[in-house]
Amino acid sequence: MSDISSQAPLSWREWLMTERPGSRTQARLGRTYTTWLRFCENKLALIGLAILILLLLTAAFADVLAPYSPYIGNLKDDRLLAPSALHWFGTDDQGRDILSRVIYGSRLTLFVVILVAIIAAPVGLLIGTVSGYAGGWIDAVLMRITDIFLAFPKLVLALAFVAALGPGIENAVLAIAITSWPPYARIARAETLTFRNADYIAAVQLMGASPMRIVLRHIMPLCMPSLIVRVTLDMAGIILTAAGLGFLGLGAQPPLPEWGAMIASGRRFILDQWWVAAAPGAAILVVSLGFNLLGDGLRDALDPKEEGR
């Protein structure tokens, strides 16, 4: 425990860790700091964070990092070359350097993943919590809608949407987002049901809080942890769905170095020229792993109960 009675000015660390913070800001900073410390204890989560930071940096500095152009290859001499000192990851059937394409592809991957996460997760969270908290006919209607979405395979539904919206990476993202909220809604609803009858929710009702306030400020924070984990677990699936759409010609359009589309096009040579599919495949694997590790660590770190006393 920090010794408050001592005359020496507190170091910033003591100020953060004090058991009796003087203001809300100090308490919040202190909490953030302990959360960060808790997160740091989890080595795997740190690895996850490192992977994602690497991904961000790669996307930001793709122009500098990539040795060749991702779009223009040498069709005459460089088709399907095995990995070498010149082309670290080899080249594809268009004679393009795969390393450069993977590097540029990180931008698309980030774009897809982040957009889907910030569209689908909040939509699912809102629908699930409202449905679970309100109950009655609101619940029935919202859950039937969710069921309809769940009844179709994700890819088929996404296909239908892209077909209607027109091909292109933006529409593919939109279609994936539209089709991936229902599981989140289900999780959020199930969680909401376990605590909507709790006394602490009744206590907020007794303060005169409106239902929307209760859902937004008191129920949603309780659903966040399991949702965060679920979203990060879904990241790999999202990347692959985007790839599937790309493969069918409805997602990222050909010259774009989207990882999924690269795997799709590499499938034709998988036995003889394995590296064409392997490099983007490994990239997807590493990035999904990063998201998973980070998600797991975040869930543990964000739970105030984990805080030692």
Binding site: R24, A27, A198, D199, Y200, A202, A203, V204, M207, G208, A209, R213, R217, H218, P221, L222, P304, K305
Partner: peptide
């Protein structure tokens, strides 16, 4: 409420719990 273990929101500090009714 009857049960002191169940009547406080597990993810809100005491400060939040007291601020909420004042804000409402």
């Amino acid at each position: 409420f009857q049960d002191p273990y169940g009547s406080l929101h597990p993810r809100q500090t005491i400060d939040r719990a007291l601020l909420e009714p004042l804000a409402i």
